[in-house]
Computed example of a mutant assay.
Amino acid sequence: MSTIGTNPTIQGSRVALVTGGSGGIGRAVVERLADDGFALGVHYAGNQAKADETVAAVKAAGGRAIAIGGDVADEGAMSAAFDAVEAEFGGIDVVVNTAGIMLLSPIATLDLADLDRIYRTNIRGTVVISQQAARRVRPGGAIINFSTSVTRTQFPGYGAYVASKAAVESITLILARELRGKDVTVNAVAPGPTATALFLNGKDEATITNLAAAVPLERLGQPTDIAETVAFLAGPARWVNGQVIFTNGGLA
């Protein structure tokens, strides 16, 4: 965090809203964009303390940030969240939607209540955030959604989660084309196995070791690895649009 705000090319000039920005990949994205001089809206769903901690870290390093809460699938709450960021910083240039849930089960025994929870957050939430972003992101900006590399690997147990992320990819690619002429890029990042609490939860050591070994680089990804791809899409990647970027160390 020591380099926050030191990139002279965009220092102090851009604003980003990161959903799920209080932990895991979301926090790494917040810190990376802060390094590039972005002012940040740090969204949280339920853990305000973690969001406040993230905001405090950005501010301590000389950056600008506010915490904003709400359910990403609630259009009223998210409209208010976007309003708060615009009121604080004057507009929004980049929206990064990392918020999501992952509940694993074989399809044959899937609890349909879990299916509804996954779809509400991952699909409806993506639509709600994409609607607000499409209406508000300034020209020259970017909308970045999150998928998963398991849409390619088809790991057993991931059926409902992967179905939701396949929907995210479709929403993303269509929105990119619907925003023709707006000078706003729309892309999705699809991480591979990444060492976050969300990914590691419920997995034994052997499973984690096998997943790391499946990657040609022979390690799990780190949240900072994913954040680098987001920073690329949020900044210099103006000719990358309507794409799903698989950031997974070469996982097939």
Rank of each mutant, 00 (worst) to 15 (best):
N248C: 09
A190P: 12
I25H: 04
Y119H: 11
G5R: 12
I143K: 02
A214S: 15
A142T: 01
N187S: 12
A45E: 12
A39S: 12
A237Q: 08
G63C: 08
M102P: 01
M102K: 10
A28V: 10
V150L: 02
G235P: 11
A163E: 07
L211N: 14
A163H: 09
G37E: 02
H43T: 04
V150D: 14
G5H: 08
T194M: 06
A163V: 08
L17A: 03
V30L: 03
S2Y: 10
N122F: 04
I144Q: 01
Q48V: 12
L233Q: 11
G46H: 14
L220C: 14
T207N: 02
A234N: 03
A190C: 13
L200E: 10
T224I: 14
R120H: 04
E75C: 07
V137D: 00
L179C: 01
S164K: 07
V95R: 03
R180V: 13
Q154P: 00
V128P: 04
S13K: 15
A160R: 05
E86Y: 00
M102H: 12
P216W: 15
A84W: 04
L233G: 10
A57I: 12
L251N: 03
F246V: 05
V162D: 12
R238Y: 01
N122H: 10
A176R: 01
I144K: 01
R138G: 00
E218S: 14
G26V: 05
V186S: 02
R219K: 13
A234P: 05
V18P: 00
R180Y: 10
S22P: 00
P156Q: 12
G63P: 06
D71G: 11
V230K: 03
N241Q: 03
K182L: 07
G202V: 07
W239N: 11
V96Y: 05
P8K: 14
G5D: 06
R136G: 00
I144A: 04
T151A: 14
V186D: 00
V55T: 06
A167R: 00
G159N: 03
L104W: 12
T247C: 13
A73H: 09
L173Y: 00
T148H: 10
G141I: 00
A87P: 00
V94K: 04
Q154A: 15
Q131F: 03
T3I: 09
R64A: 15
A108C: 11
G192N: 13
A87G: 02
F232T: 07
R238C: 02
T172C: 02
L110W: 06
A166P: 02
F199T: 14
V128K: 04
Q131E: 05
P156Y: 11
L112S: 08
